[in-house]
Simulated assay, not measured.
Amino acid sequence: MFDILMYLFENLVHNQSEMMVDQDELADELVRAGFHHDEIYKALAWLEKLCELQSTDANPYLQYTSEPSSTRIYTYEEQQRLDTDSRGFLLFLEHINVLDSSTREMVIDRVMEIETKEFLIIDLKWVVLMVLFNVPGKELAYEQMEELLFEVPEGLLH
């Protein structure tokens, strides 16, 4: 499912393609790209839920704010999906104002809906990028996250 999300984001969103695509047409394109129907519909449902989170009425996270000194406590299931490095990365993103408490919760919500055995920090970075892309007013945060995702270390590598 995550491979499909990546494919869609890179080929439709990131390439500035027309976003108003018929779902059946999109599913046919994904089948032609080699993806299975079950995974396609799971990915499309994941994206639909992400789009629903844009609406203040449908998104409890947009009304969620926390005190700057508060700490997010992760559930056991969240800890199983998001390892220490991933949780630390989310905290880092909050400290540099790429994420706020509501977008962090949206990211965690979307991460927990991804069906995968192994979830890596690079996967988390892509989910953050997808969430920020879909939240109005987060264009600067999206650009910062894009830089973090695609930054290439300078200098000689040993």
Rank of each mutant, 00 (worst) to 15 (best):
M1I: 03
M1L: 09
D3P: 04
D3G: 12
L5G: 05
M6V: 12
Y7V: 08
F9C: 07
E10N: 12
N11S: 11
L12E: 14
V13H: 02
H14E: 10
Q16G: 05
Q16S: 12
S17R: 15
S17I: 04
E18M: 11
E18I: 08
M20Q: 06
V21E: 10
V21C: 05
D22N: 15
Q23W: 02
L26E: 08
A27Q: 07
L30D: 11
L30V: 10
V31G: 04
R32W: 07
R32V: 10
A33H: 11
A33I: 12
G34M: 05
D38I: 03
E39A: 15
K42S: 11
K42Q: 14
K42H: 15
K42D: 12
L44W: 03
W46R: 02
E48V: 08
K49P: 05
L50N: 14
C51P: 00
E52P: 02
E52M: 11
L53E: 07
L53W: 05
Q54P: 01
T56F: 04
D57M: 09
A58C: 14
Y61D: 09
Y61S: 09
Y61T: 06
Y61L: 09
Y64P: 02
Y64S: 09
T65Q: 10
T65E: 11
T65D: 12
T65I: 11
E67H: 09
E67A: 13
P68D: 09
T71D: 08
R72E: 03
R72P: 00
I73K: 14
Y74Q: 04
E77S: 08
E77H: 02
E77R: 11
E78G: 01
Q79N: 14
R81M: 11
R81C: 06
L82G: 02
D83W: 01
T84S: 06
T84V: 02
D85K: 02
D85P: 01
G88M: 07
G88Y: 07
F89S: 01
L90T: 04
L91C: 03
L91T: 05
L91M: 07
F92T: 03
H95G: 06
I96H: 00
I96V: 12
L99D: 10
D100C: 09
S102C: 13
S102N: 12
T103K: 06
E105S: 09
V107L: 03
V111L: 01
M112V: 04
M112G: 12
M112N: 10
E113I: 01
E113K: 12
E115M: 10
E115G: 05
T116Q: 11
K117S: 13
E118P: 03
E118M: 13
E118T: 12
F119R: 00
L120N: 03
I121Q: 13
I121H: 08
D123Y: 02
L124C: 02
K125I: 00
V127W: 03
V128S: 01
V128K: 01
V128G: 00
M130Q: 09
L132I: 00
L132H: 02
F133W: 11
F133Q: 06
F133P: 00
N134P: 02
V135M: 15
P136Q: 14
P136H: 12
G137E: 08
K138G: 06
K138L: 10
K138H: 08
L140Y: 11
A141R: 04
E143G: 08
E143W: 04
E146P: 02
E146Q: 14
E147D: 13
L149A: 07
L149F: 10
F150N: 13
V152K: 14
V152Q: 14
E154V: 11
E154Y: 13
G155C: 13
L156I: 06
L156A: 05
L157W: 04
L157N: 07
